[in-house]
Design a protein around this nucleic acid. Sequence first.
DNA 1: AATTTTCATTTGTCTGACGTTTAAATGTCT
DNA 2: AGACATTTAAACGTCAGACAAATGAAAATT
Lengths: 242, 242
Amino acid sequence: MKIDPKSKTDLSAQIAKAIRDAIVSGALIVDERLPSEAEMSEQFEVSRATVREALKRLAAQSLIRTQRGAFGGAFVNRLSFEEAYGQQITTSTLLLSMNAVSFETACEARFALERACAPLAAERRSADHLATMRAEIFRQTQPGLSDEGWCASDVAFHRALVDATGNPVLSYQLAGAVEAMQPLMNMITFTARSRERIVALHEQIADHCDAGDGTGIEATLGDLAAYTRALGQEMAAKRRAT
Amino acid sequence: MKIDPKSKTDLSAQIAKAIRDAIVSGALIVDERLPSEAEMSEQFEVSRATVREALKRLAAQSLIRTQRGAFGGAFVNRLSFEEAYGQQITTSTLLLSMNAVSFETACEARFALERACAPLAAERRSADHLATMRAEIFRQTQPGLSDEGWCASDVAFHRALVDATGNPVLSYQLAGAVEAMQPLMNMITFTARSRERIVALHEQIADHCDAGDGTGIEATLGDLAAYTRALGQEMAAKRRAT
DNA sequence: AATTTTCATTTGTCTGACGTTTAAATGTCT
DNA sequence: AGACATTTAAACGTCAGACAAATGAAAATT
């Protein structure tokens, strides 16, 4: 691990990169303890503050965790699916909100990806996942449900569909797509009528899933995508009118 | 933005969270300048070092960028698709390598996601993307191509297919899936025969794409997935034997 | 008017210090 | 000997103050 003090980039960034590379390459393995901050500052010939800034960078990426006290220190963290979910969701959300991605584009991406789960979900769906889907549909029929509650339930329903594939990698990849859409979805004010329509489609999806009919799920997702896009266009038109 | 000095978590983590929330919520907009480190340390009633650690955390997530000198400071960063790609790829790669994800599972996820692009790619493919695909196929037929070169070309081919959808959100979501597979793919030593077989499938995909036949792309991707999985199992069997 | 110089501001880094946490080592009592 | 309390050393978390380097604006000069 070499550091170039004359480089234009920050020392803390260089040190973070060196350690990150060591982790990615496997030179540092999971749960291995890094040298103490004091040792590293000697090794890299920088101050402890600089080493700490580097470590904080890595901690922000969940690459390491730190523990205080004797025999504490920084340890290589086993990146869990939950942590990866979380990071992907914040990244995706920011990416969409900061780059003026159209509702159309985001919608297309989301349903295209979700459609990919259909065959696997139909094949492997468990009673548990089906029960979650049914429960969310039930919640969606409650008259008093707030807009926030509706959106959350919508996300939960689709998450159940994705999780039904039994493939954690797939779930992880789709978490960003589904959850990052929520803020955009929140912009649509759902009328009672549109909710009814969507619930009907959700029911169809659950039925197809129950029957192990992957093609049916794909078709209904297509309908749902078309309807959602129509709602989005309607909203855009309304906004232009005001 | 409130900070609790008595909380169990680090002050720098709390401050980072406060600023991150402000960015995500839109209270701080793109290119807006944050207060100087000195001002923040007064505002949060912590030392400058603590503020700096918080800022480094945010910089690691590409949420802010910093500039030195007068009228410099920390600015809210517009998260670009490139940066998001990069982050997703490192996260995905680590997730796969640290969680003992089976080749089978990763393969399934990858091809399921890629399959989702087929209809859109068939519909919108441009001459540019087709040319890239053909060029990569040509490179893959060169006898002297190293294993690394082969893998890189394979990734480039599939990236072209994904990019052919013309949907940057979709490209972003799939970047992780495709690129994170590379290290796993590298574990398979490609024989000349398997290369030949894969090139043939790539050619079929390019042809289907050319013809605008989305269903054909899906079918061939299915074949490719099956063949890749078979190679993986063969490799696993060989490893068990030794 | 164009160029150079000055200058204040801000980040990057260093030093040294102190508090807090933590687990191991030690000591004490039964 | 064994259970419990105490001490202690190691390590992180935070702080205060300092200096260097960069940088753009404003002032001075040609």
